[in-house]
Structures are given as C-alpha cells and as structure tokens.
Design a protein around this nucleic acid. Structure first.
Lengths: 334, 334
DNA sequence: CTGAAAGCGCTTACAG
DNA sequence: CTGAAAGCGCTTACAG
C-alpha cells in the first residue's frame, strides 16, 4: 500500500494525494474529502523513510538518555514525551551507559537519521567540548549547565547544583550536625558531582566546619548497590559521623539500608539526605529528606526551547530551574 | 556528504562504494581499502532513510514498552538493548501509557517505519486478539503468555504467573498466615493479575483457607502511590489480616509504607510479599520477600527468538521461564 | 571486479 | 485546483 495505490483508488494523481496528506491549502474540498476517505478505508500511512528522504528536514527529535535505570531521567523523559507528542513531533529515544560518550553517539545518529534536534538527558561537558561542534542542529542539554561551552546551537537547563548542595549542608548544619559524611559522584570526571561538592565546601567553610576529604568522602556511582557499599566504607573508617549527604537519591536509599544493616538507625544514629527527589523517596522507610529537582520545569523549558530553536533562529539560553528542599523523616535535629 | 561524494573523492563509482559499505564480497581489496579510507576521513555514514527505502527490509526492531516508570520493564529493556546492539541490529524504542493500546500503536509504527520485528514489553491479550492480525512481521511478547491467541507470527515468554502466585500464597500459608490480604491489579481488565489471582485461589482452596473477595482484596494500579492507598483501604476494612500479598513490588513497597504509617510494623504486625523482584526490593527496609521474574532469561529468549524468526520461517513458541521465591525480611513466621 | 541505470515511496516546483 | 516530472540517497540486478 503506497501513495500510488491511493491515487489509483481515488482517481486522483499522486501529487494531489500527497498534498492532501500534507494538508496543503491548494486542493479542492471534494478531492480532500474523497482522498481522505480512501486513506481511512485502507488504513494508509505514508512511509516515513521516503518522506524524510525527500523532505530533507525530518520530523524526528532524538533524545539521548544516559542510564536506562535512572529514575530521575525516566521521570523527565515521560514528561518530555508527553509534551513532544502533543506538538505532533516524532521522538527517537536512545539509551546509553552512564559513562559512554553521548555526543559521539549523537553525531552517529545525526549522520544516519538526520533528526532536526537533539535533547540530552544528562551529559558530560568534556564530551560536548570535544565533539559537539560536529553537530549543527539545535540541541538542549538537561540537568547540566553548558553555558561555559558557548556553542551557538546548544541550550541547557539544570538545577543549580552548587547552591542546592550548599543548602543541603546548611540544613544539616542548622539541625546540629557537625560531623558530615558525603558519598557519591566522582570529582575528577563528573562535573555534576564536582559542582555539588563545591557547594558542600562552601557551606562547610561558611559555617566554620571541618572537612577531611579522606575521612569524610567516598565516591561511588549512582546506584543503590554502590551507595550501599560506599556508606559502609565511610562509616567503617569514620565512626563519628552524625549525618550523610548522598549526591543522589538512589545512593541515599542504598546508604540507609547499609546503616540499618550495621545495626544503626536512620535518623536516630545517623541522618541521611539525598538529592533528586525521585518518587520512591516518598515511600521509603524512613521517608527521605532530599533536594527535589523540578523535572516538570526541566522538561517544559527543554522541549519549548528545542522546538522554538528548530523553528526560528534563536540565541542559546542557559537557565537554572528552581529546586526544593523537602524535609522528611531521615534527618534528625541533634 | 552522500555516497556520491565518496564516489567522487575515491574515484570509484556509486555502485562500488555502496558495495563496500555493505560488505559485499565481489569487490577488490584495493577498492575496499581506498574507499574505506575516504569514508573514515569524511566521517561518512549512509543515510538510513534512503537505505531503508531501497532495501524494503529495514534493519530496525521496534520495542513497545508499556509504562516508562516500570522498573521491571526498564530492567528487561536494558538487557534487550545490550543483546540487540551486540547483534548489530537497530532498535527503535517507544513508550506507552500503562493502559493504552500497544497493538494499534504497533500497526501505526509498522506502516510508518516498516520495522522488521516487534518486541512488546507488557501487553494486553485483548488488544492482540483484536488488532494483531494487521501485523505481519515476527513479534515477541514478553511477560505475558499469548499461546491461546494462536497467531503464526507471535511468540511469547512469560513467568507462569498462576504457579508463581500459588507458591507465594503457599509460602505465606507455611509460615502460619491464614488471614491474607491481596492488593493490586484488576481482574476484569488485566489478564496478568487475573492469572495471579487464579493461582492465589488455587492455593487458598488447596490449603483449606477462607477467602472473602470483598474483605480481602483491593485492586489498584502498579505504582507505589496506589499500593499505598490500596493497603490503607484494605486494612481499614479488615483489621484481622496477618499478611498482604501485593501483585507487584512497587505496590508492596507502597503498602509497607502505608502499614508503617498506620503505626503497625512489617513484618511483626503484618507480613508483606511482592512480585517481580526489582532491584530496589533488596534495599528496602525491611527487605522485601518477593517472586523474582527472570529478566535475563526473558530478554535472552525474547531477543534470540525474534532474531531467529526474522531470519528463518519458524513456528511461534510460547514458553514460561523460571521464577524464584526470594525469602527476605518482610515475611514473619507466625 | 566495476559502472550505468532503474527504482524504492515520497514531495514539490512547474505548467496549465 | 491538478497532473506530470524531477529528484531525495541509496541498493542491486544487469552487462561487460
């Protein structure tokens, strides 16, 4: 079933059928009606490959997601999908490992499929610095700020990780905690955890606290499993801790389990705080105190900006969206 | 940059370049080497639209996932992706709402993109019965058994939900529980929960227990939030329960939170058991006793069967993969 | 082993 | 308002 069959069946020419299918104005009402009816009857849908080949400006927007198990990203993706499909665009979703090169992958996808825009859920600025110049279509990076890169076709929306982490530590400080442990991330590689660490230092200094990186920090990846192990290592080498700030909720969830397994209680022996605000933190026992990233804003601004910069020539924008410190049960006042 | 440019740059014809790109055997070593070098230099990738348009037998496999927040499906998807990309195939992933019609969506995708196979993560047999005949490419349904439908191009791999649920209840019975509550699913619509319910009834009868559907069952969707509410409703109307079996882990996690909020303890006042075996059940407090579905087997058999039936004409296969009852902390012996 | 040519299913100036 | 025709970037018989 091709457009040719529809032409034959309707008695009109190829061109007219195509015009009807593409909602061109210069076609008679009679033709439109008749052709649409045949299209319905046959359940015909134009072949996307042929269409894109011809149109040179394809409909699809590609989304690259770093980590398929990342609940924060699934949350954002779900919203992005709703908004994009509402605007009639097509979405092409691709998942990558947490530490693979999303920009190289985007370049590959660009050459193969010519999407008209890219949305990155998570991204490493180093990869962007090195490879992004090969990408000429409008793009948006979510959850990481790319202002310093200065690319003309790359916008970004993120949480102000530094300020958010600073507030987290301030909150712990206000609640009487002086011996803090930090788990998660990897300062040398990952800018996001680096920024959060920076905010942590700022609060530590501002409040006149001590911070011994050897004794109070354990890096780990963003998973419950690694959060569990990191918390154990940290507590093993530093038994004086009264609170642990995890750089991600899943890390925090793993840490709470580890603390419990060590015969300690959250929050009576050790308080725990997370970062992200994923749904399950509301149902954990105890409920997790965390910094909620505004996934709705992130998705909304991201999609709007991407769509706009596909339609018009616009300068890139780099914005922080609000975050919220959610006080729940996992932090105790000393 | 098209294949034409590569032809010009390398001094060979279009056809030869194409042959090199597609690894055809009948091309000289010299030509292959030279052309590949030019391709490398230019970072050229053939346009997928043109290729698929011409080849009529496209590379892509489409995966339809019901529910983007479903951790069981993300787990399976991650494995499916690894296996498929390892075999050099392309993957097209599309997410749907939990209750939207995946088969209609597949028909739409088929007409637009002509994938050479479909993989369904989750699926409603009613939708398959009504619409699947419009799909003529090899397909595999995961986590639900489609044997009764008898389609020649649809295989399926699933957990034997009935037996698994029966074992779950047996286990609760062996541990002294007689007053059971069940939450989750919706017998009238959803076959999977219907099968689990069937297994539950079987165990109940076999063990000579009582079961009053009004007082011992609360349907709900697969989310922590609904699990939370369902558990509350159930306990409110029936205070004698000693154990709750949730038809999904996320439901169970929500239920544990609800029980705790009611001032009760898991497992000392009420035992809780889940279904699925998602990773976070290992880190919840208490750790959740559950039925683990074998996502590795599901993904492996699913991908292998799909790939094979794309290459050869094979009769469909419908198999159950093993499951495992994981005994953890949320169930107490009475 | 290689080139010239047809054709995949569409869209869109160009005439009329 | 409509049709005939060119062409998007590829692949693959068909000759040689």
């Amino acid at each position: 079933m091709t457009i040719k069959d529809i032409a034959r069946l309707s008695g009109y020419s190829l061109g007219t059928v195509s015009r009807v299918l593409n909602n061109h104005p210069d076609v008679s009402e009679a033709a439109r009606k008749h052709i649409m009816q045949v299209v319905k009857e046959q359940g015909f849908e134009p072949n996307a490959n042929a269409r894109h080949l011809k149109m040179r400006q394809p409909r699809a927007i590609a989304v690259l997601v770093k980590g398929s198990q990342n609940m924060l990203f699934s949350d954002i993706l779900e919203r992005v999908q709703a908004k994009v499909s509402q605007s009639g665009e097509e979405l092409f979703v691709d998942y990558l490992d947490e530490d693979s090169n999303e920009v190289e992958q985007a370049v590959r996808i660009y050459r193969q499929r010519r999407p008209k825009g890219f949305m990155f859920l998570g991204g490493d600025l180093e990869f962007f610095r090195r490879y992004f110049s090969e990408l000429s279509v409008p793009s948006v990076l979510l959850t990481n700020n790319a202002a310093e890169l200065g690319f003309g076709n790359l916008s970004s929306f993120a949480t102000d990780d530094e300020r958010a982490a600073e507030e987290a530590i301030d909150y712990l400080y206000e609640n009487g905690h002086r011996q803090l442990g930090i788990i998660g991330g990897n300062l040398s590689v990952d800018q996001i955890s680096f920024r959060r660490l920076k905010g942590i230092y700022r609060s530590v200094q501002k409040n006149g606290m001590e911070f011994d990186r050897m004794l109070q920090y354990e890096p780990c990846r963003y998973s419950m499993e690694e959060g569990y192990e990191a918390a154990k290592r940290l507590i093993d080498k530093n038994s004086g801790l009264t609170a642990i700030f995890a750089l991600g909720d899943v890390i925090a969830l793993g840490a709470m389990r580890a603390i419990t397994d060590m015969g300690l209680s959250v929050p009576y022996d050790i308080s725990v705080m997370g970062f992200d605000g994923i749904a399950s933190t509301q149902y954990s026992i105890p409920r997790l105190t965390t910094i909620r990233q505004d996934t709705e804003q992130l998705a909304d601004k991201g999609v709007r900006t991407l769509l706009e910069s596909i339609s018009y020539e616009l300068p890139p924008v780099h914005e922080y969206v609000g975050f919220e410190l959610i006080k729940r049960e996992s932090v105790k006042a000393l």
